[in-house]
Computed example of a mutant assay.
Amino acid sequence: MQHHDVAIIGGGIAGLSLASFLAPHRSVAVLEREAANGYHSTGRSAAEFTLRDNAPPVNALARVSHAFMAEPPEGFATVPLLTPRGSLWIGTTGKEDAVERARLAAEDAGVAVVPLTIEEAVRRVPFLDPAYLGAAYFDPDYWDIDVDQLLQGYARSARRAGAVLLSGAELLNARHDGRRWSLETSAGAITADLVVNAAGGWADTVAALCGVKPAGIVPHRRTAVTVELPAGIDAGALPEINEIDDTYYFKPDAGRLLVSPADETPCEPADVQPEELDVAYAAHYLEEATTLTVGRIASSWAGLRSFAADRLPVIGPARDNATFFWLAGQGGFGILTSPAIGQLAAGLIAGLPLPDAFAQEGIDPAVFSPRRLD
């Protein structure tokens, strides 16, 4: 029977980023229930990198992560992980004050946002409806993330450091005998000194299998569709478009336009599928804000975004079992913060010093500890 210092449950971005940073210091196995890593949340993310649109502790993690994303280690990726995109923030008539407050807040934070007239906004996005727009500004600090390159980079670096990545290995049973964990999976049995719960929407399910008190991680369904762009529109030149109250967003995606109604519907962990009503809302918002008519949905899908009650990640040993480590609750920001969260979790597990950037950003690991949930 294989024995490892650490068994990571979940081969999404959380599990593989941790494996990448931890494997040089501990023997690691990653157990993924699906046939491919990143199948659920990671593989269905719109994946933009932003420095500001989350809670302050998460934004600090994003700032630490940006250096890694902008200049990954040599050999980590074959193409850049980040591509400049920018974001156009818009509000309809009646939301001018909300747009102005957001713009001023960004300026107060030292961000070089650009206020736009309605005509200037339409020049950036020619199919916006000027009759809909009340106000707009442009934020340059948005990037597209090449999620596949990022995920595969973590996987390669973990393997190079000796990690074992097991697919089709669903956790079926777990028992701790006071010395080590015995894990029964659909791909066989292994033992480990420490179990890391990086199971995303299934995090509380994994905790229950291990006899650990749940952390209250709730998965939420989010929907996205793609539609064809009008002839003559250069998708590569378009910014992401965000509604000021987060009612919807749309952005270029593989030559089409990705549209999401920004839904967050609590649900059971599952291979979620888009609901017809949410698909209809996506089309409605696009037609309301633009001159486009949605005649056909080219594709649609849904993914899981999982949160703790306070919407901060849960990182650290379980309150009731120090040999069970939480790495969950990263809904909506798990990909963009994965370099920082992977390093933070690896440091906590292996007793490693964190890079100076963590102290410079004022990051306190206790803010993310499961103990805050007591």
Rank of each mutant, 00 (worst) to 15 (best):
R179K: 08
A121P: 02
I145H: 06
L104A: 11
A109Q: 12
T117R: 02
N173W: 06
D97H: 04
L81R: 07
Y132E: 02
A161C: 05
E107N: 02
L81A: 12
A102L: 11
L133R: 01
P57S: 10
F68E: 01
L128S: 12
A98N: 09
Y154V: 04
V99F: 06
A174N: 08
E48G: 14
P84M: 07
G162Q: 12
N59K: 10
V113R: 00
H66Q: 13
D129R: 12
A155N: 06
F68C: 00
S87M: 14
A161T: 04
V122H: 08
Y132F: 15
E170N: 02
S167C: 11
Q149D: 10
P80A: 05
L151C: 09
P80H: 01
D144H: 08
A169I: 02
P130M: 06
V113D: 00
L172M: 09
D141L: 13
D53L: 11
R124H: 08
G75P: 10
D146T: 04
V113F: 00
N59M: 06
L128Q: 07
N59D: 14
V147R: 00
A98R: 15
A135W: 00
D139I: 03
K95H: 14
D146S: 05
G168K: 02
A46F: 10
Y132M: 03
F49K: 03
L61A: 02
G91V: 00
R85I: 04
F76L: 12
V58G: 01
T93R: 15
I118W: 05
S167N: 15
Y142W: 13
V125S: 07
